[in-house]
Computed example of a mutant assay.
Amino acid sequence: MRITTKSLAVTVLAASLSACANSSSTSKKQTAEYYAQLGAGYLQKNRLELAQENLDKALKVNRNSKDALHYSALLQERLGNMQKADSLFKRAMQLDSKNPELLNNYGSHLCKQGQYKAAVTAFNAALQDPLYETPEFAYTNAGVCLQSAKVSDQAEGYYRKALERNPNFPLALYQMAELEYARGENAKAQAFLYRYNERAQSTAETLFLCYKINRALNDSTATEECVTKLIAQFPNSVEAKQIN
């Protein structure tokens, strides 16, 4: 799933679909799993109506499908139905409280609601699983949440742990660039943003940060280049309008 620089990192793991949902030998649980994974696949592709259709089918077959509840929560959150998403997340957590991907996504949900302490607790719980394959997501999310709570020093610790695990993780690189810029450490911010740009595509947020950093460094040529790219690539963005 594409990760934007402004968002918390959410993971959706869609398994390959090899079973036929209509097979007479397929149990209700397997059928629900089939529809849940199909829904997850559509969610990854941002085809929300088809995601909703298949996740609803999964829950109709098995109202306690852990994956269907998890992915339905993510879908409702994307649709802006935060109260419904919260209810679905809580049901999923009752059934699958040690799943690191679920804990990461639930932590992201809590952080968006301003429940920073509970969110970091969820991220740390995800990180306790030695089999968690992408802990850089939870480390970075914990940092984002702590930064939102104005605890920058602790946030930096989590970002650095994310980069220890995956030195090329774009979201952590961007967050470190933002953090260093906020501190007035513009050369360090520029170095982190350069590493980000080597590994990920520019966004309105990264180009706006590029503009701010180079303006602070009094590099008019680089500043103008950042502005030109921002307006050309993202003319309707909030960042482009701020510059205009």
Rank of each mutant, 00 (worst) to 15 (best):
A162R: 13
A119T: 06
C20G: 09
L110V: 03
Q242A: 08
A172I: 03
R195Q: 15
A191P: 10
A138L: 07
R63V: 12
F169T: 06
K60R: 10
T206G: 09
G80L: 01
K241M: 03
N46R: 11
A9D: 14
L163M: 11
R91Y: 04
D56G: 00
Q44R: 12
Q175P: 08
L209M: 10
K84P: 00
A58L: 10
T5C: 10
E101G: 00
C20T: 05
C145E: 05
T221S: 12
A118M: 12
A138H: 08
M93H: 03
S202E: 14
A68S: 10
S18F: 07
A58M: 10
K212A: 07
A9T: 13
Y42I: 01
Q128F: 07
D67M: 04
Q30G: 15
M82W: 08
R78V: 00
S202L: 04
Y132T: 02
L88K: 07
L13Q: 08
Q83H: 08
Y42R: 05
A36P: 05
C210V: 01
K98I: 06
R63G: 02
E180F: 12
L38S: 06
E180P: 09
S72V: 00
N81R: 02
K241R: 10
Q52I: 00
N81I: 00
A92K: 03
S87Q: 13
D67E: 15
K84G: 01
K60M: 05
S108V: 07
P135N: 12
Q113D: 09
H109Y: 15
G41F: 02
T26H: 02
G143V: 07
T206R: 12
L13E: 13
E101M: 03
E239Q: 14
E133V: 09
Q76M: 04
A14I: 02
K241L: 03
A36F: 08
Q44D: 11
A36S: 14
E77P: 01
Y106D: 04
A73Q: 06
N214S: 04
L110M: 12
A222R: 12
Q201C: 00
L50R: 13
A122M: 13
A36E: 04
V12W: 01
S65T: 04
T206C: 10
E180L: 08
S7P: 02
F169P: 10
T223N: 01
T134E: 14
S97V: 01
C145V: 07
A177V: 10
K117H: 08
P135L: 12
L193H: 14
L38R: 14
A125K: 15
R47K: 15
L131N: 13
N166Y: 11
A182R: 15
E185M: 11
S24V: 10
